[in-house]
Nucleic acid binder design. Structure first.
Ligand SMILES: [Mn+2]
Ligand SMILES: [Mn+2]
Ligand SMILES: [Zn+2]
Ligand SMILES: [Zn+2]
Lengths: 140, 140
DNA sequence: TGACAAACGCAACCGAGTTGCGTTATCATT
DNA sequence: AATGATAACGCAACTCGGTTGCGTTTGTCA
């Protein structure tokens, strides 16, 4: 049951190509327990004896992001990270000591807050980012 | 009236020096309606015919952050921004078209959420970052 | 199998942020 | 006011994530 084939099929139907890089980038992101950076992905390719130019990785990530397949995150270290767009919206908690990252689901979501802010500030809110920073069990 | 003198006095009592750069960086951040990046600050110095080396800016920001005087923020463009540590915790809403940034105060804060997450994930939560992204009134 | 566009590699580049080291300015002490 | 200690500064060189232009390869479909 490889989830990536289904996604790639959809992209192909829209005139995009089914390439090795595209499939592996997607597979890596699907399998990864935490968001990956472009350098992370390039290293993963290298580890599989499949060197890929960094430009290709950046372009592929931009493409998948543009297609809504993945989303971009930042955890305070000036490098973008990516994860497959989740079905159920969630956030992250990051250990500032060992960089452990876990998914977090809020008890109460931020929809009401967004509505209130949109009204008060006259913004049309498209999305938000929320990350918690702390010390994980092992590190404290 | 000049809030910076008070802060600088406190720093001086701890053995730190009262310099032109320190005072102006702090004044700029106090007066700015939105968080500033290191390049922003360097340009502000230049505009006042007071060129300052970028290393100095970075070191000063790191210093003020370490002292808890300012805090570091990120708005998805891979450049850190800084604002004076607020008395009342708040977040930000960013226009993805014109980069307008406004402060936002949540109706309900995230303390309860943090407690719940800390317990479930066994993390000791130190802080969090929450930014909303959208289109401002002028841009929509 | 041929042709077209998408995808790719390469090299050069950009800009935020860092580091090492020698110099200058602040501040307390005399 | 002169002295000395050290915080702060400037400079140059560097790191690294990310981008751009352009020529080449590869996937797709007729
Ligand atoms: Mn996640
Ligand atoms: Mn603010
Ligand atoms: Zn940890
Ligand atoms: Zn705007």
């Amino acid at each position: 049951m490889h989830e990536s084939s289904h996604i790639l099929k959809g992209l192909k139907d829209q005139g995009h190509k089914f390439t090795k890089v595209r499939k592996l980038v997607l597979d890596l992101l699907i399998k990864s327990p935490k968001p990956l950076s472009s350098p992370d992905i390039q290293k993963a390719f290298l580890a599989r004896k499949m060197p890929v130019n960094k430009t290709t990785i950046y372009r592929e990530l931009a493409f998948l992001k543009g297609q809504g397949v993945i989303r971009e995150l930042q955890f305070g270290d000036n490098t973008m990270r990516y994860e497959v767009t989740p079905d159920n919206h969630h956030h992250h908690i990051v250990c500032i000591n060992c960089d452990k990252i876990e998914d977090v689901i809020l008890e109460k979501d931020l929809d009401m807050e967004e509505k209130a802010i949109a009204q008060i500030k006259n913004f049309k809110i498209l999305n938000h980012s929320l990350e918690f920073y702390g010390i994980c069990e092992r590190c404290q």
